[in-house]
Simulated assay, not measured.
Amino acid sequence: MRAARTSVAITVVIGSMALTGCADKRTKAAVTVTVTPSHTVTSPATSSATPTIPTTTLPAGRAGTPRGGAPDLGGVNQKDASAVAASVMRVFATQDTALDTTTLDAERRAEPLLGAPLAAAVKLPLTGNGGGGAAWTVLTAHHGWTTAVAKTVPMTDVPDQTGDSPTLAVRQVDVTSTGHGTGNWTSKPATAVWIVTCRRTAATAPWRVTQVYDQTP
């Protein structure tokens, strides 16, 4: 598994693998967003030896409905872990440069279905350049947005998926995303594979996504 989401750093590759339109299908550019708490304090013992690099906290994106559409999270069957996992990953993959400052803003739209520690991670302020990466730059240049389809599939490395406990479920979600932009620009569709962990506080409580891992081949 290539990347784990934590409260410190989030690696986002959904919608980033074919947004150039003409790129080789085997080439993918990961969009990495580094999340740094704005209140981080430098230790007095090291502050004199380590230069401080000024950073600027990036503003969050605007509220609104992305042009690529998004599932109605209020209508998701929250007693179904598969439905929750697929809905969250589709929201993550649906980005819109007219609303979003960075790709993390798309993740924040899924907050109602997120649990700790992921819910806390997406709320943290961004500093530095916010990651972005080449794919986000291309999408921004086209004033673009993405559309996405997400579905749960049998886990390729865990054939037996009957081991869900009343409060823990793990799902593989395949997400296919496509970039769209001005001048009828459209990227090649790209599929990412995610392992999604869902938890709930009790057998009758709603499921929440707590961790996601990129497992794209």
Rank of each mutant, 00 (worst) to 15 (best):
M1P: 15
T6A: 09
T6D: 13
S7V: 15
I10E: 05
T11R: 03
V12M: 12
I14H: 15
G15W: 02
G15H: 03
G15K: 04
S16A: 12
L19F: 04
C22K: 15
A29R: 15
V33W: 06
T34Q: 15
P37M: 08
S38E: 15
H39S: 14
H39E: 15
H39L: 14
T42E: 12
T42P: 11
S43M: 03
P44H: 01
P44D: 08
A45N: 11
T46F: 11
T46H: 10
S47H: 06
P54S: 00
T55V: 12
A60W: 13
G61L: 08
A63E: 12
G64P: 14
T65Q: 07
P66Y: 06
P66V: 03
G68E: 03
V76Q: 09
N77H: 09
K79P: 00
S82R: 13
V84R: 10
S87K: 01
R90G: 07
D96V: 14
D96C: 13
L99H: 08
L99K: 03
L104R: 04
D105V: 07
R109H: 05
P112W: 01
P117Q: 10
L118Y: 11
A120N: 11
K123P: 00
L126I: 09
L126R: 05
G130S: 09
G133L: 02
A135V: 02
W136P: 00
L139R: 01
H143V: 02
W145V: 07
T146G: 04
P154I: 08
D157A: 02
D157N: 13
P159S: 09
P159C: 07
D160Y: 05
Q161L: 04
G163H: 12
P166D: 09
T167Y: 02
T167G: 06
T167R: 02
L168D: 12
R171F: 06
Q172M: 06
V173K: 00
T176V: 03
S177C: 06
G181D: 01
G183D: 05
N184V: 03
N184C: 05
W185C: 00
S187M: 04
S187V: 04
P189L: 11
P189S: 09
A190L: 02
A190S: 10
W194L: 10
I195N: 08
I195L: 08
V196S: 02
C198Q: 10
R199G: 03
R199H: 10
T201E: 15
A202N: 12
A203Y: 06
T204W: 01
A205C: 08
P206W: 01
W207G: 01
T210E: 06
V212H: 03
V212Y: 07
Y213G: 09
T216S: 06
T216E: 00
